[in-house]
């Protein structure tokens, strides 16, 4: 009986250790710092060539699209601004003044080479501000 129990404990321990190892290895190899533009700029020499994710507002009027679908734009957090280059699927809601999240590498020429682009406008989503624009004048 004791021997049987021991076998179980060993098997369970092996599973637990394997899962922990997978989690540990997964986190270690795939983790990405999520920074604001300012934080990115602050870490400038060390941050080059490591994968990071940065979020900021798209600066109006900076979106440039070439005919091959490649995209260039700037994002800002209000104090600092960076150039972003991206190629790939552009989300439908991506536009001026939208909060964009880019993931990729900040290259030495100070252009952020992104391979992932997400866009969101959650703060406005449940707000009623936009409804005021065409409220009844009689009110």
């Amino acid at each position: 009986m004791l021997k049987g129990k021991l076998k179980f404990i060993i098997a369970i321990a092996v599973i637990a250790l394997t899962v922990s190892y997978l989690v540990y290895g997964g986190v270690k190899d795939t983790m990405v710092y999520y920074l604001t533009v300012e934080e990115l700029k602050a870490q400038v020499p060390t941050v080059y060539d490591s994968r990071v994710r940065v979020s900021g507002m798209v600066v109006p009027g900076t979106i440039m699209k070439d005919t091959n679908g490649a995209l260039e734009f700037q994002i800002t957090d209000g104090t600092q601004t960076i150039d972003v280059a991206y190629e790939g699927i552009v989300p439908d809601i991506f536009a001026d003044d939208v909060e964009a999240v880019v993931e990729g590498v900040y290259a030495k020429n100070d252009v952020f080479e992104a391979d992932t682009l997400l866009a969101k406008c959650p703060t406005k989503y449940e707000s009623t501000d936009s409804l005021y624009e065409n409220k009844e004048t009689s009110y």
């Binding site: 394997t18 899962v19 983790m31 999520y34």
Partner: peptide, 18 residues
């Protein structure tokens, strides 16, 4: 104090073997 993300590669690496 730093926001660190793990993306799809993490989930795939862990979950595929399981």
């Amino acid at each position: 104090g730093n926001k660190i993300l793990v993306g799809p590669p993490y989930f795939n690496r862990v979950n595929v073997p399981i």
